[in-house]
Design a protein around this nucleic acid. Structure first.
Lengths: 209, 209
DNA sequence: GGAGTGTGTGACCGGTCAGTAACATCCTAT
DNA sequence: ATAGGATGTTACTGACCGGTCACACACTCC
């Protein structure tokens, strides 16, 4: 779905030319970094092509508009994100409680990085509000998938009320990634997430460990 | 702090001329509504003065720049918000648990309104990221104050770990208001907040009611 | 009636931004 | 070697946006 491959027919099978990847990919990478760090509305196409070491014409030869590029950015981030979720939870097969704990630990650790700017999708949902931008549907799909993900784990873990636990996890996660930008440096309330999560899981699954 | 009064000396003491309030106030009201609904970056000064039924010169005679207007918008929203919190919690003096429950119920009810666009401050934090906009400090101050508010209630309620409960409440609240824009219409996970909150409060305060 | 103040009007400036045109160049497959 | 696709370069358009200027009108208080 990230469509790393594209309409490009040539370049043979490209044994090891990794020094100069396709322009299209460089543009997507540069745009992704800038959109995430500075916000979609604050990044112009000139900044993107400059960062990608190319020019505007190459951008518009590969994308019909900036909006199309935004959609690809969002879809790519969602795909990356869920790939990480799958990878992390796969470490604890048949132990849904540990899967949840590991997932939260992973997300908090990512958020503690100084370069974190919260959740790309949620930021986009806010930046694109009031418009009919096609990227909004990408965000919605990802959110619903996340809730399904949590609900499956809550059911597998035998929660007293899987829906309540799933919503609690979703809300805590949303709160964690969003508060990254609304609290000043070093005051992130999600730093205590492991304790918060333990209270919630103990209450819904019975005290464990 | 909303500074509804200003440098205006004249207009007598203005018995009942409410049909035509000061231009400055009309501008702030119009800007607040537009900023909240459509986002700060998506609203131009032309749209603001048009909505306020005035012109650009009147705006720039009262505000040095659009940024100053944004700061006033944010400060006003924060003031309104905490005034509501105080009012709601004042209904249950000496019952911190009910204060928390009432506060959450109030916020969820507000969020369920079709016209809700989440939290003005958090939205601004995202829209203004990457800049050194003076409005960011307003957001930070409000967030820290909110956490203090929760911590006081958690302590007064006798939580097993007031810090953990306060962070949990803050994260749930942040998640609730933010997910307003990242979930599609009618799928708001905070609709089950009362059940989620009960689990958390029972765990930290002991089962009650 | 005047002075002072608040307000309205329209034109304008400089900058930025998304998107396009025309032409030059490089690389690769055959 | 050469043809064709991919890429680079420069300049440009048209729209929008934040902000300013000069001037005219309205109201109130003395």
């Amino acid at each position: 779905m990230t469509s790393t491959e594209s309409t490009a027919p040539a370049q043979g099978d490209n044994a090891k030319t990794d020094a100069k990847p396709r322009v299209r990919d460089r543009i997507v990478d540069a745009a992704s970094a800038l959109f995430y760090q500075q916000g979609i509305n604050c990044v112009g196409v000139d900044a993107i092509v400059c960062e990608a070491g190319t020019n505007k014409m190459s951008l518009y030869r590969n994308f019909g508009s900036k909006d199309e590029l935004v959609v690809e950015y969002l879809a790519g981030r969602e795909a990356d994100n869920f790939a990480q979720w799958d990878e992390v939870t796969a470490r604890y097969p048949d132990d849904p409680r540990r899967q949840i704990e590991a997932l939260f630990a992973h997300i908090i650790a990512k958020g503690q990085s100084k370069s974190s700017s919260g959740c790309p999708s949620a930021n986009a949902a806010i930046e694109l509000r009031g418009t009919e931008h096609p990227g909004r549907q990408v965000v919605f799909d990802g959110r619903l998938r996340a809730r399904r993900f949590m609900l499956e784990r809550a059911e597998a873990a035998g929660a007293k009320s899987p829906e309540v636990l799933a919503d609690a996890l979703v809300l805590l996660l949303e709160g964690a990634v969003m508060s990254r930008l609304s609290y000043p440096e070093g005051e992130w309330p999600a730093n205590n997430m492991d304790a918060v999560l333990k209270v919630m899981l103990d209450a819904q699954l019975g005290a464990a460990d």
